[in-house]
């Protein structure tokens, strides 16, 4: 009996000590960690917009976030967008509701600050105050609208779909005509040397310059990449002066409707990527048009 008490006490104390150490380190590092993650995502976004060491990020670049929610009221569904609006010359966030038929349903201001809106829990509390039961809301996805002054630079779409082994997370940049300008693989779990080649330039850059019309009927073909196209796609391996502006334009024009060449030994991954990106572009183009119409017709003072 004495032994049992000693063991229990010993284990409890060691667990407590371990817990205190872990908790202490967690509280000490949490802020820095979050900041790093934020910088990481922002760095990816700005590099996708074409800013780097030689083209620094301009001061008037603004990234507006848009969050899509699905609202459900006793079976009738509608789409809710949490988006930034101008109110008293300041940016605040509002919930815009649009019916499935594209009709504008309502606008309600949310009590949430610009820093907190990126956190899903903060948005939930703010939405709870506006969306009254029996109506429920579920988070669907988000979009980032990048603007430089009054000019729309790109839509950035984070998205995920199934690959060969598990989920592939990507970020897509579209211009105002819904042509893909950049694709970045954020996270994947494919086999190195096979499916993981999707993050290599010669595969992911194939999606660049594909317009919405091309994306709608794009296929995966089991043919080797043409040599000149491959040289062009591997941008980090360009020799100085190898690609003049005229040459780049020629190649871009020649291959802008070219199908996606599958990776050797990873046809399933290549197909999944193409299907996933096709779906993302098509759905986004459809949704943003409806939203734009609804916002314009009702003169919502959106910030973007």
């Amino acid at each position: 009996m004495k032994e049992i008490i000693r063991i229990t006490l010993g284990l409890t104390i060691s667990c407590l000590i371990a817990g205190i150490i872990m908790g202490g380190v967690f509280t000490a590092t949490e802020k820095a960690k979050e900041h790093n993650e934020y910088l990481n995502v922002r760095g990816t976004m700005t590099s996708m917009l074409g800013f780097n060491a030689t083209h620094p990020v301009p001061a008037d670049l603004r990234l507006y976030s848009l969050y899509r929610y699905i609202l459900d009221k006793n079976g009738t569904k509608s789409i809710g967008y949490v988006l930034p609006v101008k109110k008293d010359k300041k940016i605040s966030y509002a919930l815009v509701t649009v019916g499935l038929d594209g009709k504008f349903k309502g606008l309600s201001y949310l009590n949430i600050s610009e820093e907190k809106v990126s956190k899903i829990e903060a948005r939930k509390t703010a939405l709870d105050a506006v969306v009254k039961p029996p109506e429920t809301f579920t988070y669907a996805d988000s979009t980032i609208i990048a603007k430089k002054g009054p000019k729309l630079l790109a839509y950035l779409l984070p998205g995920e779909f199934n690959g060969f082994k598990s989920v592939i997370k990507v970020m897509l940049a579209l211009n105002s005509k819904f042509t893909i300008t950049a694709l970045e693989i954020m996270e994947d779990d494919e086999d190195p040397g096979l499916g993981a080649e999707i993050s290599e330039e010669y595969f992911k850059n194939q999606f660049d310059d594909k317009s919405l019309q091309t994306m709608k009927k794009i296929k995966v073909i089991k043919q080797p990449l043409p040599n000149d196209y491959r040289r062009y796609l591997e941008k980090s391996k360009w020799k100085k002066g190898e690609f003049t502006k005229a040459k780049i334009d020629k190649i871009r024009k020649k291959y802008k409707d070219h199908d996606i060449c599958a990776l050797t030994g990873a046809t399933i991954t290549s197909r999944a990527m193409t299907r996933g990106i096709k779906g993302m572009v098509k759905k986004f183009a459809y949704r943003i048009r409806i939203l734009d119409n609804a916002l314009k017709q009702n003169k919502v003072p959106v910030a973007f």
Partner: peptide, 12 residues
């Protein structure tokens, strides 16, 4: 855990 958290904060 300690190494994981410290690295995440100090050496991203």
């Amino acid at each position: 855990t300690v190494i994981d958290l410290t690295l995440a904060a100090l050496a991203p």
